[in-house]
């Protein structure tokens, strides 16, 4: 390994990055691109991250770095998804399909679909800001660096997004006749 600086702190095995940040990146992907495309987005993100990993600066914030990659991959995956004829995630698979990583039985939260319905209704910018702030824990300044625009704009997008998301979810809850 070539060290450009004399006192370089060595990078941890990439496996530790996958273990530590894999779950939060999956939550972010599920919130940003939805259940159907989340696992593709996660896979593309970690493959790209693994490729770039040896050049990651010692002092880099790993969450922000992964979210930056995930943001780009989410855009790619969503575009690819938009070109598909029609996604029908509502129809459950009757029996376990034979092989194929694409067709997994949907977890409970996906079948419910309520959260994704509410997220999907948000403008993409708000959905991203909400996920990066509330799920990945990024400060607004870092979100602005990821999505472009100012720190204030990122703060507004997250605030408007979370407000709208709560309203929609509360509405759903009332429709079911439950106490919120």
């Amino acid at each position: 390994m070539i060290r450009l600086r004399g006192v370089s702190v060595s990078l941890r095995p990439f496996e530790e990055i996958v273990t530590e940040y894999g779950p939060v990146v999956l939550r972010v992907c599920r919130a940003v691109v939805g259940p159907a495309d989340a696992e593709d987005a996660w896979s593309e993100t970690f493959l790209a991250a693994m490729k770039a990993y040896p050049r990651l600066p010692d002092d880099a914030r790993v969450e922000a770095w992964l979210v930056t990659i995930a943001h780009r991959k989410a855009i790619d995956v969503a575009r690819a998804g938009a070109r598909r004829p029609i996604a029908v995630p509502e129809v459950p698979e009757p029996a376990a399909s034979s092989g194929g990583s694409q067709q997994q039985p949907a977890p409970e939260w996906e079948r419910d679909g309520e959260l994704w319905d509410a997220l999907k209704a948000l403008p993409q910018r708000q959905r991203a800001a909400v996920a990066y702030h509330y799920l990945a824990g990024l400060p607004y300044k870092e979100i602005a660096a990821v999505t472009g625009g100012s720190t204030d704009a990122a703060r507004r997008a997250a605030a408007d997004g979370i407000k709208s998301l709560r309203r929609r979810l509360a509405h759903h809850t009332e429709e079911r006749g439950e106490e919120p």
Binding site: P23, L26, W42, L47, P107, L115, Y134, L169, P180
Partner: peptide
Amino acid sequence: TGTGTGAGLDPFAALPATDAAAHERLHARL
């Protein structure tokens, strides 16, 4: 800006914090 109904709820409560089956599947794919 938590005002109005449901302001105190975590909107992401439905998203599992960890999903071991998905993680294992994604790790193998990676």
